[in-house]
């Protein structure tokens, strides 16, 4: 237990000591998205009967939760691998489940801190209601956990930074950008609506948004089920890779 807590604390400090880059910068990015898209589209677009800017904010929050959770675990692991300091966590008697939990929880923490930052920075621009805070928390934590675990796989798999970057650019970015952050999928042609239903991130954002507006594209219970199932599968996969020592123990 102390081993787990120490690893969690270390992973927390690792991003917190450079919070300007790891928390403040992504908040600023989200703010820029909001200013540009909100400014251009706010007068013209309404989604689910809410103004576009209001509609956009939860999506941006969730997008940053996911991307930063992924960035945290993946960058921590690849850095440790490349510098060799990974031995410091491989030599001690830390069970692989504790190893997994510490990296994922730290990723969730960073995601939530960025998400909260985005929310606090943007909430001044619109009046945002919070209809169901528990749904918001549930989706943020599960989404962050899922992307934290994906980040672990990516960080362990990658041998160089550019491999990690391609994981990020060709999987994580498209998954999050094409999930309905910027639009309701019902504005899409039928074919792309269908495709969107195979994107787990769509359910995360949709369910997360439900917590704010009380309306969503699909029922939040359905979204929760999808997200829990994805989290379970990815966690199981990550745990079995860790157990085998895949790419960590030669």
């Amino acid at each position: 237990m102390i081993g787990f807590l120490t690893l969690l604390e270390k992973e927390f400090l690792r991003f917190w000591k450079v919070a300007f880059q790891t928390v403040a910068a992504p908040v600023l990015t989200a703010l820029l998205y909001l200013l540009i898209f909100g400014h251009v589209l706010d007068d013209h677009v309404q989604v689910h009967g809410v103004r576009y800017t209001s509609f956009l904010i939860p999506g941006l929050v969730m997008m940053q939760v996911l991307q930063n959770a992924f960035a945290n675990s993946s960058s921590s692991l690849i850095q440790a691998k490349i510098t060799g300091s990974i031995v410091f966590v491989l030599l001690p008697p830390i069970p692989y489940s504790a190893f997994f939990a510490a990296y994922v929880l730290a990723a969730v923490l960073r995601g939530m801190m960025v998400g909260l930052g985005v929310l606090l920075a943007t909430v001044w621009f619109v009046d945002l209601k919070i209809v169901a805070p528990l749904w918001i928390m549930a989706f943020a934590m599960l989404g962050g956990g899922l992307f934290g675990a994906l980040g672990m796989i990516a960080g362990i798999w990658s041998e160089k930074f550019d491999q990690l970057a391609s994981f990020q650019n060709f999987l994580i970015m498209p998954l999050t950008m094409l999930s309905g952050v910027f639009y309701s999928i019902y504005t899409l042609p039928a074919f792309w609506q269908g495709v969107s239903h195979y994107n787990p991130v769509f359910y995360m954002i949709d369910g997360f948004r439900y917590g704010f507006f009380g309306v969503s594209d699909v029922a939040p219970e359905t979204s929760l089920l999808v997200v829990v199932a994805c989290f379970a599968v990815v966690s199981w996969g990550t745990l079995s890779l860790l157990k085998r020592g895949w790419k960590l123990r030669a």
Partner: peptide
């Protein structure tokens, strides 16, 4: 301190 913690020593 961190290394001690990994070995379960506070």
């Amino acid at each position: 301190r961190i290394q001690s913690g990994y070995f379960g020593i506070r």
